[in-house]
Design a protein around this nucleic acid. Structure first.
Lengths: 225, 225
DNA sequence: AGAAGTCTCAAGTAGAGGTTGACCCTTAGC
DNA sequence: GCTAAGGGTCAACCTCTACTTGAGACTTCT
């Protein structure tokens, strides 16, 4: 009886109360129903009690999130979860970014009005993200704009390492949006993918607008003290 | 009977057969039902016949698409379509130091098109920051814009608690700038304070631009996988 | 041993999303 | 002006999803 007794297993009631915070309308009978519909398959004790692993718990959370936030019907959620095929494979360079011309380091520095030392530093802190191609770094146009902004900030005494936080914040915010539109973007239905791109665009605008407003408010508070 | 007879208007049966190709399960009764549910509002003849404009047709297509491909319930589609009233890009960004009129909760909710429950939630997570004055909460104009953005994000299933990160990021970024200009702003010398405000403004723009660019880059990466 | 928790299975419920039918009115074409 | 084809409302009905409830029996914990 060695196998898997290590990892903590949860009974249905425990699972239910754990999720009650995030999903107030969970219930024991609902969990059973979801199993009945083929969305969950918890282990069982010899006596027939359901035992939920951490993975089961996570899966259940995903189900509830898709249901609550994406309004997906269970039938669709089942499909979504059944196909881990959504993982990569597709080197589709679609949409949002049409193919952009790329720059090398010298061009970037010239465009941004910075020196290579600063560029190297920016790269070190993840503010520039070139792709390497045959030993050569290639920068997107966007990176030049980023470098320009950073260069000007540097003139105020704000070094790249201070700016790392900007990047991680942007990444986190994008990650949030990913959670929302990711499934659509990876959908098999091309119409749904297109809609996903549209949502991505809209959410991007909204998110950008929001952080802009919040940032501005914080600054104003700063100004008025 | 001169008015508006120029643009071609369609009867319900025509609309129905036009859409039959793309949406086989459309029906006259369904269109009527959608109107009943407040999703459509076609004009009427004196006799009471529905008359659909091209815009109505487009709107109907959108509804059917959202329903079929995104599985959105009508209630959500209605919201979705009702909101783009927020279309106006307000570049209004009054100077940092200026006095702004304030709003109370009701006004805020109305301006942002959200309900008080959401407003309360936003406040809970620090996205709205009213000042309390004699037991009354007073919101800045900026808060209304923030609430508007959050409301729209909520329609995408992004709840206030997911947005807390946006605020903390904005605060951290503002804090960074504070470190640079803070001393000037608190200086006794008014000339130096003025210069500090100018720097604050410039740094604000730069910081905002930077996080915008970084966010955009992260999204593009998302779009191209 | 006993209380608290869980099991299954059948039946019931609430709401979304329409459909159907009865009955009457409009509109376009002759 | 007549008439056929199409449209209007309204109430009742229907189907499907997503659960809930209750009865009766079993399991687990202490």
């Amino acid at each position: 009886m060695a196998t898997a007794s290590k990892t903590r297993m949860l009974t249905i009631g425990t699972v239910c109360s754990l999720l009650k915070d995030d999903f107030p309308d969970i219930s024991i009978s609902k969990i059973r129903y979801l199993e009945d519909q083929g969305l969950l398959a918890p282990r069982r004790t010899q006596g027939g009690y359901r035992l939920f692993s951490e993975d089961d718990l996570e899966r259940l959370e995903t189900i509830l999130r898709l249901q609550r936030d994406e309004f997906l019907p269970l039938r669709v959620i089942r499909q979504e979860l059944a196909s881990p095929a959504a993982r990569d494979r597709k080197r589709r360079r679609a949409g949002l970014g049409e193919e952009q011309p790329e720059l090398d380091l010298t061009e970037l520095c010239e465009r941004a009005g910075i020196d290579t030392r600063l560029a190297r530093e920016l790269e070190e802190f993840g503010l520039l993200a070139p792709r390497t191609e045959g030993g050569e770094k290639r920068y997107a146009e966007l990176d030049a704009d980023i470098a320009l902004a950073c260069g000007r900030l540097a003139q105020f005494g704000i070094a790249p390492r201070h700016l790392r936080g900007f990047r991680t914040a942007a990444d986190r915010e994008a990650g949030l949006i990913e959670q929302v539109v990711g499934p659509s973007l990876r959908a098999r239905n091309p119409e749904r993918r297109r809609a996903g791109m549209e949502d991505l665009e809209a959410l991007g605008e909204l998110g950008q607008g929001l952080s802009q407003l919040l940032f501005w408010r914080a600054l104003r508070r700063l100004a008025s003290t």
